[in-house]
Amino acid sequence: MKIVFCLLLLILGFWGKRFFEEIKPQPELNAYLPLGKRFEQQLIRGVLGGWRPVVADIAWLRVTTSWENRQWNRLYENVRIATRTQPESLLFWDMGAWHLAWNASLAERNNRLEARIEVRKEKELYWAEKGKNLLEEGTIYHPTHFKLWLQLGLLHQERRHDYVSAYECFLKSSQFNGAPSYVARMAGYALEKQGDPAAVLNYWEKLLEKSPDRPDRGLIEKRLLKLKKETTLDPLKPIP
């Protein structure tokens, strides 16, 4: 009788467990990552337990002190620890890349202790590249968040003057949930810098066509009119 009772509990328990595993509603954190990276994350989660975010946060506090002391290599190491330990936190990718591609990079450009301009330039580009690489890795962990794509677009545009990549990133960012309306406009501005007036006009028109109730509709219409005048195209005729 007692064995039957135990068996019943076992069967019911296993059945219920399987049932919940099958109807598990949400994907695991980082479920879209390659298996190797996921395994790494689960291992860190298991070993550090609840302290995992705390370890990441303490590394992040060290990022702030490194920034204040202008210790860029130390800053980079701590950004890597924070992003590796808790990659789900968008803040680490976003701010970490900002520290590298803007703070470290510009500090090296304006470093008066280094007399050789070419060395300064080299270091400036080095940190800008590090920031870009970090953001690109961040987009693997957050593929559908507009913020990292927006930052990557800004980095391409402002630090690398690569307007083709900037346009692609802004465009991608504008397609995700929560993206402010200006992101789509930034894609248009990046496209303008590529020097293809027909493509630019086409982009703006399509943007208005796709979402006619945009809050920035007036701005886009003005821009469109100005561009049509500049490119000597008839504003009343459709774009070729």
């Binding site: 009772f5 135990c6 068996l7 509990l9 076992l10 328990g13 219920g16 467990k17 049932f19």
Partner: peptide, 12 residues
Amino acid sequence: FNLLWILGLSTW
């Protein structure tokens, strides 16, 4: 449900 099967096995 995990506790159910654990109870079953540990009682056994």
